[in-house]
Design a protein around this nucleic acid. Structure first.
Length: 205
DNA sequence: ACCCAGGTGGCCC
DNA sequence: GGGCCACATGGG
């Protein structure tokens, strides 16, 4: 995948806060829609912790409308901001640079942040070695016959017990799996990220 | 007119 | 623990 696609340079964000916002906005949503939402937040001047924390829910919701689930996600973003302000004196870095297990439990305690969003923030926001599992990862490895469970932590254990614990490796691997998973199958367009047929995708297996 | 997208939480059994 | 549902916009 690395040879085919090249380094992905993830996460596509200019600040840790923007990274966290993107992680929430991309839940079950195409990244192209998230980009529109991020641009709207930026042009409204509410893509930093203090500004978003003091913004109204309506203003946030209107800005992120293109990313879908905008009412739900506006609340989730506000709760994330509230948490950083209340529990970390408004300093996101203080939150991110904690012990990795403490940070994970803290993120999971927030409404609307589940295992994938939490791990994305830990890997790409805090730069700590946690393997991120998503729908593409499960689909690709199930098709390869290497996975027989869809349980998040069982899948995660499969990777972390077979890979060197390395932030750079985990960063690139997950990003490449997403790139591969998005690729449309040449033979059968309905099939994405299918590694099973000759010439089906750009990655030969 | 479909189907899917870098999930999560609630509810049911 | 697993199976369904709501949440919502935009692109193929």
């Amino acid at each position: 995948m690395l040879e085919t696609y090249g380094p992905r340079h993830w996460w596509p964000a200019e600040t840790p806060f923007e990274m966290c916002v993107g992680a929430i906005l991309t839940q079950n949503t195409a990244w192209s829609n998230v980009e529109k939402a991020i641009d709207n937040l930026k042009s409204r001047g509410i893509l930093d912790l203090e500004s978003m924390h003091s913004a109204t829910r309506e203003n946030i919701a209107e800005a992120i409308r293109p990313s879908g689930y905008f009412n739900q996600k506006a609340r989730r973003l506000m709760m994330f901001c509230d948490h950083v302000v209340i529990s970390h004196n408004g300093c996101l870095e203080d939150m991110l640079y904690q012990d990795i297990d403490i940070l994970r439990r803290e993120l999971l305690s927030l409404h609307g942040i589940g295992p994938e969003t939490a791990d994305s923030i830990i890997l790409y926001g805090a730069c700590k070695p946690v393997f991120v599992v998503d729908a593409y990862t499960i689909r690709i490895f199930t098709r390869l016959g290497l996975l027989s469970t869809r349980d998040y932590h069982e899948v995660q254990d499969y990777f972390t017990s077979n890979l060197k614990e390395d932030t750079g490796l985990f960063n690139e691997y997950h990003a490449l799996l997403v790139e591969h998973g998005k690729e449309r199958c040449r033979a059968r367009p309905a099939c994405r990220g299918c590694p099973l047929e000759e010439g089906c995708c750009r990655v030969g297996l």
